[in-house]
Design a protein around this nucleic acid. Structure first.
Lengths: 206, 206
DNA sequence: CAATCCATATGACATTTGTCATAATTATAC
DNA sequence: GTATAATTATGACAAATGTCATATGGATTG
């Protein structure tokens, strides 16, 4: 089995390569450190399997996966991630990658590779168990934690619905200036710069 | 462990009951044959676990689950299904039920019950493997469809990452004016009003 | 070769957004 | 009962945003 290995961190790439090559059936035929490289290398090497990190600098593993799958719908891609990448799980599932593992879970990597090569789909246990929560949009934005007041939260929701200050003011029976002030405070509390970042924040935390 | 058993088909209920009671730790404290019964019985009996069919006459297992979970967020619900109930899987995941098994898979039922009672989430293997496919046919933002050009799409992604026009210009080596023009065109094509709505649109379509 | 389309760019303009200083109420808590 | 916090409000200002008209060079296509 010819494997292409992509990880931002050269140390990880090396470590993984060592692990993988303890398996006689596996050959690492290429490595890389970015999404763009993944795409280029994939097209060139046509590996049996692509083992890729999710979080990378230029283009993340998911974008790269999507692109590769567009060109090679049969591509077998196994994504690696850390616990903190929760939000990626659903996106990963949607791109159609064949597996999703925690990096920490070294023991599972080899079996997972074999399974994916055999056409199976593999998700680490912890990940499966998070799926219902994630789909449920649990993990709801805990506004108390950031010291956000009820009123402020109403503004947040309105912004996240795409309303302008004027519209928010009208809907909540406030003056536009007040809405602006609230928003300004919110941005400050959440350490964001503008309403767009706020909307994004909202969707990523809910 | 006290279990409530709901299935449309009395034969199945009986069969399952027999299987379950081979396990000394399990007691079937009630049975029923519809979603409504499930809700009523659940409230009355407060079982440790509810084992329920998905497809039933009056109110399907998912609606019933949703209702029960609303009243008892800690409820442990294990849904039974057949291969043909594909479309239900995603809905099931979204309701927050704790497990989802194929009826055919008798052998897994007892272990699954134990697992769920211990707070785990359990999905039959075949089901897990269908999740990516099922999610995938969801709305991936098909920018071709809206006549969005590649370049424009890059702008969209940048906006969805919370960048300002100035930053986008710098990153993509464009003038700020050009970025503004692109954005203006994009908003027009997608029938949106401002960058915030665009970011929201983006997150809702992927 | 003319007609389009794409990528890129300006300048001008109106509007919206975000910040700041400041302040009047009304609860609430100590 | 005084200090603090929450709700609401001004006005002024700078910066960012979005629109429009217009323009050029390159690629594609009929």
């Amino acid at each position: 089995m010819n494997i292409l290995l992509i990880d931002d961190d050269a140390l990880v790439t090396t470590a993984l390569k060592t692990i993988l090559e303890t398996d006689k059936e596996i050959t690492v035929i290429g490595t890389g450190s970015s999404g763009r490289e993944a795409i280029a290398q994939y097209a060139r090497l046509q590996p049996d399997l692509l083992l890729m990190d999710i979080r990378m600098k230029d283009m993340d593993g998911l974008e790269a996966s999507a692109e590769i799958l567009k060109q090679f719908p049969q591509a077998k891609i196994l994504l690696l991630t850390t616990f903190s990448d929760d939000e990626y799980i659903i996106r990963a599932l949607k791109t159609g990658t064949r597996g999703y593992l925690l990096k920490q879970d070294y023991a599972s990597i080899l079996p997972a590779i074999h399974a994916v090569c055999n056409g199976q789909t593999v998700f680490g246990n912890e990940i499966i168990h998070r799926i219902p929560d994630l789909l449920q949009r649990k993990n709801p934005f805990d506004y108390q934690k950031y010291g956000i007041l009820q009123k402020e939260f109403e503004i947040i929701k309105a912004v996240a619905n795409g309303y302008s200050n004027r519209e928010i003011a009208d809907t909540l029976f406030l003056s536009e200036g007040t809405v602006r002030n609230y928003l300004s405070t919110i941005l400050d509390k959440l350490d964001l710069r503008d309403r767009t970042q706020l909307a994004i924040f909202y969707y990523q935390h809910l």
